[in-house]
């Protein structure tokens, strides 16, 4: 970002991160095709949060939208990170799993649907515990079944990132698109610091956190596929590219490769993030 022209272009770009969940789904679908299912006026709220003194949102923080992507039938599931950290409860999880299962049924009946997940989530909603976990398991199963028919494309843009059981959902997708602001990990930095201590990880050290689990590092080490700018048009274009190009073998089926990678790590002396990029360089 050295020249004035580059700065101007950067400032003029339509940010994706600044959009809410509904606007993000709109930005991914072909213009004018957005049609929401089980929207806020259906009032599928969490029955559990008010019992614990927490105000519930009318759509439980998940937007399910039908429409088209390059004229082909599509479904976008978009998580609202600003509501309860994008956490997955009974209702929001059922909406995600239901959307994927219906897309699977359509694919099985010979009517391909392009599925896109916009993930902005801390994982399971602790107030709903097992019900959220069960729903996340259904999401995992649906992604694995669906990706045999059609690429399942996920975007983690930030600023929440994607953690817990939903990071496994992201890992199961055929193509994972991230920005530099995204973070992807099983445990979030605060959880690691709380459980393992400050010596293990300082959750306040932003440079360290992003060097470990930031979008750029995840792409460099092969845990995500595409690094994009925070630009709604660029992200929509990458989603289209993901459906145009055939996906390679899913990451979760490359078991030998992953076991070999782990075997090359000395747990007593874990490598620095930069060294990990060399050690686990993504295969060309």
């Amino acid at each position: 970002m050295s020249t004035a022209g580059e700065r101007q272009r950067f400032l003029a770009r339509p940010s994706f991160i600044e959009l809410d969940a509904r606007e993000r789904a709109c930005a991914i679908l072909d213009p004018g095709t957005f049609r929401e299912l089980a929207g806020p006026f259906d009032r599928l709220k969490s029955p559990w949060l008010p019992l614990q003194g927490v105000v519930a949102q009318a759509d439980d923080g998940v937007v399910i939208a039908r429409g088209s992507i390059e004229g082909r039938s599509a479904v976008v599931a978009s998580i609202e990170g600003a509501y309860q950290g994008g956490s997955i409860g009974e209702v929001s999880g059922a909406k995600l799993a239901g959307a994927l299962e219906l897309a699977l049924r359509d694919c099985q009946l010979g009517r391909p649907v392009r599925p896109v997940l916009l993930l902005e989530t801390g994982g399971v909603r602790l107030q709903e515990a097992n019900l959220g976990l069960a729903a996340i398991a259904e999401v995992h199963a649906a992604i694995v079944a669906l990706r045999r028919h059609v690429p399942v494309v996920a975007v983690v843009a930030g600023l929440v990132g994607c953690f817990g059981g939903m990071s496994l959902a992201a890992a199961l997708c055929s193509r994972l698109i991230v920005t530099r602001a995204a973070r992807l990990g099983m445990n979030g930095p605060e959880v690691i610091e709380q459980e393992a201590g400050l010596a293990e990880l300082d959750a306040g050290d932003r440079a360290l956190i992003w060097s470990l689990m930031g979008g750029e590092q995840r792409v460099a080490t092969g845990f995500a596929d595409v690094l994009v700018e925070d630009d709604a048009e660029a992200i929509a274009a990458e989603v289209r590219r993901a459906f145009a190009s055939p996906a390679g073998p899913p990451r979760s089926e490359q078991v030998e490769t992953l076991i070999a990678r782990l075997a090359g790590i000395d747990g007593e002396h874990p490598p620095e993030p930069a060294a990990l990029r060399t050690l686990w360089a993504r295969e060309a």
Binding site: D20, G39, P40, F41, P50, G53, V54, V55, A56, Q57, A58, E80, A82, Y83, Q84
Partner: peptide
Amino acid sequence: VHVGVVGSGDLEVLLEPSADEDAHVAVTTS
């Protein structure tokens, strides 16, 4: 119409035709 989000320092508003001739507001606040 629907605007907003139940996020920190924020709120969501669901506005629709009333069942009678008055305006009714139901607030749930944290």
